[in-house]
Design a protein around this nucleic acid. Structure first.
Lengths: 237, 237
DNA sequence: CAGTGGTCTAGACCACACG
DNA sequence: GTGTGGTCTAGACCACTGA
């Protein structure tokens, strides 16, 4: 059948990983590569998809481990809600890390998207979502400072800009236009999510609108595929 | 800043590709790698995302070429429609290739999804979508033979199972529950779409329901990210 | 046939975690 | 320090295209 080592390798690794109990440490990469009869490069290439699927976890300086049942965050996209809300709805606890809040001046692109003038002050909130010590999503919100200043973030900020805006109530939010893509992780996102550069990620790019039809927030989100299940109901005609 | 060759390389290639007119052939990989001062492996890794973004096209045995303006197929996911319908709506011509029609017996998974008994006859239609000689999507439809037999496909079949079912009118279709993921291309899909194994793809997995609430069709679709723009409108609370 | 991209190897060196 | 995964290299061989 497959003349290529890769397909055989991938099949063997699939059964190997499935056969091992959770938390098991795999042999080191040089060892495993030798055992499988392939080079380390080929082995790592095959391991790539296993990590984004949530089947294994690689920790630099430590080793590679089998993951048991993955807590999948399941959500319909028709309703806009924060990761925190999604997670709590299915009884999963998530935490926020690498929270970073910046006050920036809008550049050309940012100004156009947010429908403000170039140079206006904007607040940018970026953060990483963890479930069970595993970074699984990276979110960046950008919005005019008039809608969200740093002192707004002092009181009871759980990490989600959406939840904060909803709680405040003004301006009233209406909907979000979200664009869905599949992308390769760049170096920055790869480090934040503790994956390899080039790994596959689901990207959501959204503009949030008020009931008055004004853009209030632009968000960019990256999700590890294996830890999320997004779906949408499509009606005929 | 970047100690790693990769980030510098990616930046240089981005400007290089952007500066060249469409249809330009790039130097061969060994040449370009030498010019950039990196190994061929690193060069190819960087080229990876450029191809899925629709910026370049690699043809085995021929060369690597710059692509000008990419005809992006833009579509809202709330409404279910075929690729053909999406494309014609924006005045783009697409064609179907590698059309394959099989009559199979349902295995365990297939039977469960389609809510039929194991071993039932199912028709499977798989095809590749081309725009401008470029394969950009791979679609597989699976449905019970009672809903679609081979002779149904003789008369005026444009490739889309959905369009055929809609034209026929019975049973009446209601909606589709679609799951969205980002995946790595496996060997089979990579060859069909003429990309590299491991390249990033957007995957839609859908069950199509009749007005009576019965599953009539299961479809699995893979899209090259750079050639499609899918979006969804999310309403608040 | 010559030239291209596609796959794979062996090995080097680095960054990181842990004792 | 030792051992792990992360990055990168140089080079081999294969598969494909087109003259």
């Amino acid at each position: 059948m497959s003349h290529f080592p890769f397909q055989r390798l991938q099949a063997e690794l699939t059964t190997l990983i499935a056969s091992l109990p959770a938390e098991t440490q795999l042999p080191s990469e040089p060892e495993l590569a030798k055992k499988m009869g392939v080079s380390r490069a080929t082995l790592r290439e095959a391991m790539r998809s296993f990590e984004t699927q949530g089947l294994i976890r690689r920790k630099q300086g430590v080793g590679t481990f089998v993951i048991g049942e993955v807590p999948v965050i399941d959500s319909g996209l028709e309703v806009l809600e924060s990761i925190e809300t999604m997670a709590s709805r299915i009884g999963l606890s998530v935490s926020t890390g690498s929270l970073k809040i910046d006050l920036l001046s809008a550049d050309v692109d940012c100004a156009e998207v947010l429908e403000i003038s170039i140079g206006s002050k904007v607040t940018q909130v970026s953060r990483v979502i963890f479930t069970d010590e595993r970074p699984v999503a990276y979110l960046v919100d950008t919005l005019p400072e008039v809608f969200l200043s740093e002192k707004d973030l002092k009181t009871g900020f759980n990490g989600s800009v959406l939840d904060l805006l909803l709680r405040r109530g003004i301006p009233r939010l209406a909907n979000s236009r979200t664009e869905i893509k599949a992308v390769n992780a760049d170096t920055e996102v790869a480090h934040l999510l503790d994956i390899q550069r080039g790994d596959v990620l689901l990207q959501l790019k959204a503009n949030l609108y008020t009931t008055a039809g004004k853009v209030i927030d632009h968000s960019l989100s990256y999700f590890l595929p294996g830890y999320f299940s997004f779906h949408v109901n499509r009606r005929v005609g």
